[in-house]
Nucleic acid binder design. Sequence first.
DNA 1: TTCGATTTGTTCGTATGTATT
DNA 2: TAATACATACGAACAAATCGA
Lengths: 253, 253
Amino acid sequence: MPQKNTPAGLDVSGPDPLYKQVEQRILQCLADGEWKPGEQLPTESQLAERFGVAVFTIRAGIGELAASNILVRKQGKGTFVARHSRLRQRYQFSHIHDAAGRQILPGRELLSFTKGTATAAEAARLGFPPDARTPVIRLAMISVDEGKTVATLDIVLPARLFGSLTAAAVRNAQENLYAAYQDECGVNVIRVEEHIHAALASAAEAKTLKIRTGSPVLRVERMAYTYRGLPVEFRTRVFDATQYHYRTVEGGI
Amino acid sequence: MPQKNTPAGLDVSGPDPLYKQVEQRILQCLADGEWKPGEQLPTESQLAERFGVAVFTIRAGIGELAASNILVRKQGKGTFVARHSRLRQRYQFSHIHDAAGRQILPGRELLSFTKGTATAAEAARLGFPPDARTPVIRLAMISVDEGKTVATLDIVLPARLFGSLTAAAVRNAQENLYAAYQDECGVNVIRVEEHIHAALASAAEAKTLKIRTGSPVLRVERMAYTYRGLPVEFRTRVFDATQYHYRTVEGGI
DNA sequence: TTCGATTTGTTCGTATGTATT
DNA sequence: TAATACATACGAACAAATCGA
């Protein structure tokens, strides 16, 4: 008998330690939608019984997912699937700051909500074959802060995942659009990658942002991913580089 | 007796749990230079005896510092103070990518190494009073990749911490300048904050980067910090935005 | 308001596995 | 091979937070 399998499928003699297998199993359940954003997971003892391991091992697995902001533990209540709060960002996903260093948390205004097919470039980014005419939803928006247009915001979403998204839901969404993705479509963004470019404002951008054509702008292209690296959103933000900049922090303590 | 103190000073009845106190004590030892970059810490059992707690508690404290890349644990060997490798970045501190998405890991060329006093703005960033005429070291460099000048790189260092730094040490430093800071001056960078601006190339920048004056550039201003939030370096990098861009990733798994 | 049941947080002791020297 | 050191795993106890009776 070269290996021992518990009924739950965890492999005691496998290459990965049990707590990492627990982590993967929980991630799989999340990807399968068994536990949706905001919902409570079974208690640690229940999970221990289900997976056939000690509570200690469950805690180690959950601990890693909590450190990654995938799960949230609340003493006395339980363990929950992390949500994007409606009122503030779960991550510091908004990196726009003004010249004084103050973080800008702008509101949004929806200009258009249209359905179409992905361009080859968009399909490639969203993980679809370039010639598949993948149905997408396009959102054209502007970011507004204290009455000023801070940035243009263009979003491309695969229609297959976001079929239930409506213009009204986008308009009603408060600070964080990703909360609407969760509530309306069950899509949970857990990772983003951004490419920051500098460019000169096009005539259209200049008009929207009320700046001069050819003045410097920052263009931020973001890919957002859900569980298991599945790409779910491509967005482009353009803003006046003479008024605003982009800020990041790296490293701990 | 409202509280109980072990001889090592850990407060059992304090507001913070023991493992967090262990974390703080270890951080203090690092800040005091008791264990220098690359050196081995006492074993977990020794630390447990020293602090008067169980090995489990020491492991919890060390675990948090290891997760922050402050310490490195090696099975069978011991726990070590993390180092900036000479050959590659400990963090993905280099965020410059080309149009094809390839990360640029450029070499450096030292143009000048001078000593002077901080401007008011520099003093403010480095945590000194603006009128103190704080002595600083200035490094003017260019980043070079495959024979091309990728970026200008200007660094300001407080002379008080970097008195032992020499132009030769900077020239000899391989990929990672922060390794030289460790080896030559015992300064360990553990956190950086970057502000990314877009601008139009000045005449001087254009000449160095071999681009046209007024073409778009990205200007990245970085503050680097060591233990306990002490600022130790201010650097500015400027590069051609038509060839290169800045990339970040956020979130887990 | 108080009390008790539930759930996670912290701490300890112990045993065994695995990498290093 | 043997000793050392960290990694994994289990069991147990109590603390702290939460919630409902």
